[in-house]
Design a protein around this nucleic acid. Structure first.
Lengths: 152, 152
DNA sequence: CAATACAGTGGGTGTGCACCCACTATAGGT
DNA sequence: ACCTATAGTGGGTGCACACCCACTGTATTG
């Protein structure tokens, strides 16, 4: 008689819970698709930053994405090995490494964005187009209002 | 001139990204509060299941919460040590262990729910009450429509 | 009563993630 | 020239999480 698969309503009543749960599946599904290409989420984030804001010194990438510089180095290294970004020493300050997205890098980003939208379509299937827009707007405001703490 | 802290719009345009991000902070903030009490999210989930659906055999808890039976054992063990649940052998089938929430266990759950709502209030501060309800409804439908895969 | 199945449990493994330190090369100040 | 600060990098640590196996007790079946 007890459907042993039902999730406790005490939890379902918490937006916190729903947010965390759906967020986790969203992340997992996207990560899975990226993994099929041998990529992780940071690769996508780095490509996005380079494409949106132009070339970055590695340190600035680290600041923008709130990642440890040492971890950025590894991600950039992998992207460079795959020809998705170029690295070049800054002539004025030879300590700095300027990272630029290549054409194939930008093309890759577009593909990854398509993957993300596919995941989205799958996940948000229960919602109408208008509702998806609504959800996006609400999430966006929540995100913008969230002081980027150490837990982002 | 480049504000090096701005997040790439390519990412912000993806609901997938916003969901994953906000979900992550929601989870992290709640987890942090629970950690202050020496608890983890599973403790709360177990208490919720027991309170909402009554006593469970451990195996059913595992099924309901989609956790490995061996991990449930550990969580239940800790809750029992703190007097939040009772364990008793099923007389009919002495292999089974029946887990029941104690009064203090249910009281603890109420406190944890308060913590969760506090986190929620903090996180959803940018939204009006009506918008929070709206968000909750949308998330709920997304959640319900998500076939609980291996990635939840 | 033998053989098989199942509940619970202890212990271990692998993975992803965030973080941190030590070291180099280079700049910049005085 | 020296001294200090900074960019990048290689390597490692700690943690949370999910997963899995071996083993003990108990039930069930024929």
């Amino acid at each position: 008689m007890n459907e042993p698969t039902a999730v406790p309503p005490s939890l379902l009543d918490l937006s916190t819970y729903l947010l965390s749960r759906t967020g986790k599946t969203a992340r997992a599904r996207l990560a899975e698709r990226l993994a099929d290409r041998g990529l992780r989420l940071w690769h996508m984030a780095v490509l996005a930053a380079l494409t949106d804001f132009g070339p970055h010194v590695q340190r600035d990438l680290a600041v923008r994405l709130s990642v440890d510089p040492s971890d950025i180095a590894k991600v950039v290294d992998e992207l460079a090995a795959a020809g998705r970004v170029d690295r070049s020493r800054d002539a004025a300050d030879r300590r700095r490494i300027r990272v630029t997205a290549t054409d194939t890098g930008r093309a890759l980003l577009r593909e990854l964005q398509d993957e993300a939208e596919a995941v989205q379509a799958e996940l948000l299937a229960p919602l109408s187009r208008a509702e998806r827009t609504q959800l996006h707007g609400l999430l966006r405001r929540v995100f913008d209002g969230t002081p980027s703490g150490p837990d982002d």
